[in-house]
Write a protein that binds this DNA or RNA. Sequence first.
DNA 1: TCCCCTTGCCTAAACCCTTTAGGAAGTTCT
DNA 2: AGAACTTCCTAAAGGGTTTAGGCAAGGGGA
Lengths: 189, 189
Amino acid sequence: MARAGVTTERLVRAGAELADEIGFDRVTPSELARRFDVKVASLYSHVKNAHDLRTRIALLALDELADRAAAALAGRAGREALVAFAGVYRDYAREHPGRFAAAQLRLDPETAAASAGVRHAQLMRTILRGYDLTGPDQTHAVRLLGSFFRGFVALEADGGFDHSPPASGASWTRLLDVLDSLLRDWPRP
Amino acid sequence: MARAGVTTERLVRAGAELADEIGFDRVTPSELARRFDVKVASLYSHVKNAHDLRTRIALLALDELADRAAAALAGRAGREALVAFAGVYRDYAREHPGRFAAAQLRLDPETAAASAGVRHAQLMRTILRGYDLTGPDQTHAVRLLGSFFRGFVALEADGGFDHSPPASGASWTRLLDVLDSLLRDWPRP
DNA sequence: TCCCCTTGCCTAAACCCTTTAGGAAGTTCT
DNA sequence: AGAACTTCCTAAAGGGTTTAGGCAAGGGGA
């Protein structure tokens, strides 16, 4: 009987595609098996279980995102870096809604520690090198940016900005300006 | 045969409790039926289907949140209002993680329009009455606050701030100060 | 080349969740 | 009490998840 050539690698990659097509929550071993024209049970040699599959997709997404962010930040600083990083983040969410949803899967602490989430934190600190922030306030600023990016993109994805002007893109651009200004002129405690 | 006294109301309320106990994604008709000591099929007289149940829980959470926010904002303005609103939001997420997750369920446009989400937007505008913001920048500011609140609380819930100091609470307090300062001194375009 | 061993995929089966159809028992109103 | 309605039930179909056990394809070694 001919082999379909399923591997963990290909499974995860296909799962990511599938997530972008039909939504991360509908990515199931069953659906994937259908796509590979293989019986469901066959997947369980490559992936521990459904949760394992979803976790691997999440890790893939985090990795891709960190790769793009790193590329975008190369050679930039300050405002330019901020805008570049933010653009990567938002574009990824729009191009790959399923992967982006996956990236927000809650990971258990050990998995999270080994994930690209750590790289993300590092990259954010890189952005701030262009501004004059030190000590705890640097961490606070990282958290402000991270929260804003994540919150904005999530709200946008949920259509939260659709039913009143201005368009979400206008807010995005303007708010990046505002944040740049805030970082340059960070209030003293 | 004795009746269990199931109603849509009690079902949704129990579903919300359940969400806080075991997570919103694990709230299922089956689990609820077990809690009410009733056969699963019996629920379908009170609730259209699983999705309907989840939507109702989401609407309940949005309503509760708006109620609390409205109460907290009464008689406050400016910085005080900002801190009060933010506190309500974060406390609710910590006290009721399942309900909070439910509140972020993606609703179809009609349902969303009829939800308390609209009240939320209104309340945020109330906060800004204490600051000197008009026109599009007022909307941008609302979106900044909404994105930050949502993003921060989500990241905090996912344990994103757990593995490096300072504690997330310190960032929260400090960042509210920073945002207050930003709103008072909003940069010109 | 032949054998063997690993590995990929299969069948079978158990279990749980969702949803619909149709029926019986309890409740309410007249 | 009888009619009408509501609540809850049984039965059954349809999927998704997961494990156990088996057959055969493909690669490595004698």
